[in-house]
Amino acid sequence: MGEMVREDGRTANQLRPLNCSRNILNRAHGSARWRQGDTEVLAAVYGPKAGTKKNENPEKACIEVIWKPQSGQIGKLEKEYEMIMKKTLQSICILTVNPNTTTSIVVQVVHDDGALLPCAVNAACAALVDAGIPMKHLAVAICCCLAESGYLILDPTKLEEQNMKSLAYLVFPNSTTSVCTEEASLVDGEPMEHGIITSVTHGVMLVDNYLHCLERGRAASAKLSDFLRKSLKSQLQSDS
């Protein structure tokens, strides 16, 4: 099962090459480009701007996600993506620091080759860091796919995504460095990065398969969060 070779020659757990660059747009307050293989997303953060939108709590900051597809108008799927991203980002940002403000995140899809939503979440997270929006921690997102025959693959391409029985988008907190001892930083006996921020599944899968997904996703998220930290650091280094 582990020896399954995919069309692009990757193993089941192998991610596509990652690439992240920040501060690429001149007028946005923060921006980032995130690339996973051929999937590429550009995220721009504007704000915090004065005032919240209608029906939002003015005692907290409001987060607004605008999804721009590669072409055409936005449909139901994009609306759903916007909502998922909004909820995810709301939970990692500290909303009480800038009450009665709105932060807009514009997500532009440059190319979609599978695992689009996780890629967008990663891009938005890097853009929020670039804009200096106060955050509790970072988030890393990963896509897991379950095939008919029961094997799991990570970070699928568009073709693989279409041939799969079901798939799960998982968002995890990043692994943090801490001066505390290992035991002190545990939350309910488990390290922070084992928590889960968002989980979206499509299609049917058994509970066991889902737990298996979580396990694989966690392992991959460690790699992703190392990459995110490294790329943030290298760019901060060049700034100062």
């Binding site: 460095t177 001066v179 901060l236 280094q237």
Partner: peptide, 21 residues
């Protein structure tokens, strides 16, 4: 004495820099 002192290091959101206890 703290081996992981983060002063003058680059930090990202979520990092814990001091343990008050």
């Amino acid at each position: 004495v703290s081996p992981a002192s983060l002063v003058d290091q680059l930090v990202v959101p979520g990092d814990v820099i001091l343990d008050l206890s």
